[in-house]
Structures are given as C-alpha cells and as structure tokens.
C-alpha cells in the first residue's frame, strides 16, 4: 500500500537547515495498523504529513497504492488526499459552524457526491461511530471523545485507502482514549489500513506494528501482539 525509499526532509529556517528525516525506508501493507512512535521532535508528524501529502519530501520516493507520488502541485495533492487518504488530528479540526453530519459529509462534497447520498453516507458513518443521534449537533455541543469520533467518521466517509491519525488520543483522557482506540481497532478489523502517530506506549501497544523513530531514522520496526482496547472500556 505504502512504499517509501530513502526519504529525506529538512526544514529551512533562515540560513540554518534542520535535517528532520534522514533516510527513511518504510513499507505498509493493506490492512495494517501501524504505530509511529518516538519522542517529541523526533519527526513523527513530519513523516505522517509527507505520507499524507500535506507536505513534500526533499529526497527519496513515495508510492501510494501503486501510484508514484511525484510533482505534487496543490491541486493534484488535494485530489489525491481526497481520493486516497483520511485524516484524524489531535485537535479534531472540525468546522465549528457545521453540524456533525455536515462535517462528516464535507469530504464527499469535494468528491462530487450528490447531496442526498452525502447525507445518507454521513449518517451511516456517524452510526458506525455511535453518534447517529448527535448528527444535528454542532462540535461545540460535543465532548472531546465525541468530537474525535465525528472526526473519525469524517475520515471514514471518503472511504480512503489509508487512515492517518496524528496523536488521535493526545487531547483525550485515558478512558476516552481507549474508546477511540477501540473504534480504530474495529475499523482496522474491517480491513482498513491505519497509521497512528503517538508517543504513548499503551496506545502503541494497541496497534499491530510499532515503528520507532529516533534522530530522523527508524531505529526499530516490530510486529506486536495487539492489546484489545475493548477490555478497558
């Protein structure tokens, strides 16, 4: 699904240049649930942003579902993001004046899906995250966990190839975190490929594979026995 070869990325700040990713080689197969771990500032978000086509790489190659991701201009990146990827952010990033259902329907709007079908699909995915009754509510009327579940429903609505979550539980207490992880595990059970950036070991242990980043390189990449989150909720 994802193939990365010898990826380099630096940030230029004035005359200085900060070399964040120093040659990453990394493959993800369909159906995997991968945790990207590492201390703060180790480049986890940078890697995920490049994989999510929110940022561009300096060197190396990136292939997504057999499509080489090169010469990304804004329009092309937007189209790929819309077609291939679903994002889940630490701070949810819901549009505050749109209801839960409208937020979930938004990626479908950019896919050109008709209005009626959008509404149906939005409700379907809200139901999947257990928030059907909250469809008409604004984000400000939802709890943190509920907001993240709406965001997950939104990421799912576009039926992407890969779900990418940057610290999805970073803003949640541990009980709510496990609820969210339970949901993510169920989505993965259904066959979706998911990448999760986290620095919390307990969250990483709920994935099937852990990739450890340090000083811009992968220092460890191991398959783990998944801890099911359902036992904590």
């Amino acid at each position: 699904m994802i193939e990365i070869k010898d990826l380099h990325k630096s940030y230029k700040m004035g005359n200085n240049s900060l070399h964040v990713l120093k040659g990453i080689n990394f493959n993800v197969k369909e159906g995997e649930l991968v945790a990207i771990m590492g201390s703060s500032g180790s480049g986890k978000s940078t890697l995920l942003n490049i994989l999510g086509m929110l940022d561009v790489l300096d060197e190396g190659s990136y292939t997504l579902d057999g499509v080489p991701i090169v010469d990304l201009n804004e329009t092309k990146a937007a189209k790929y993001r819309n077609k291939f990827l679903g994002f889940i952010f630490q701070s949810f990033n819901l549009i505050n004046y749109k209801s839960a259902a409208e937020n979930v329907a938004l990626p479908l709007y950019y896919q050109g899906v008709g209005r009626k079908e959008r509404q149906e699909k939005a409700l379907k995915y809200l139901e999947q995250v257990g928030l059907k009754q909250w469809a008409g509510h604004l984000p400000s009327e939802l709890s943190g966990g509920q907001k993240q579940r709406v965001a997950i429903a939104r990421a799912l609505a576009a039926e992407p190839k890969v779900l990418m979550a940057d610290e999805p539980t970073g803003a949640l207490d541990s009980k709510t975190s496990y609820e969210v992880m339970d949901l993510i595990q169920k989505i993965n059970d259904a066959g979706n490929t998911i990448l999760i950036v986290t620095h919390e070991p307990d969250i990483a242990d709920m994935c099937k594979r852990i990739v450890h980043l340090k000083d811009g390189v992968i220092v460890e990449d191991k398959i783990v026995d998944q801890v099911r989150a359902s036992q904590y909720v």
Binding site: T75, F87, L94, I95, L106, Q111, R154
Partner: peptide, 8 residues
C-alpha cells in the same frame, strides 16, 4: 481543514 479533506 477543507484542503486536507480535498478542496483544491
């Protein structure tokens, strides 16, 4: 957000 969701 809209761009992340695919707005050109």
């Amino acid at each position: 957000i809209r761009k992340a969701l695919g707005a050109t």
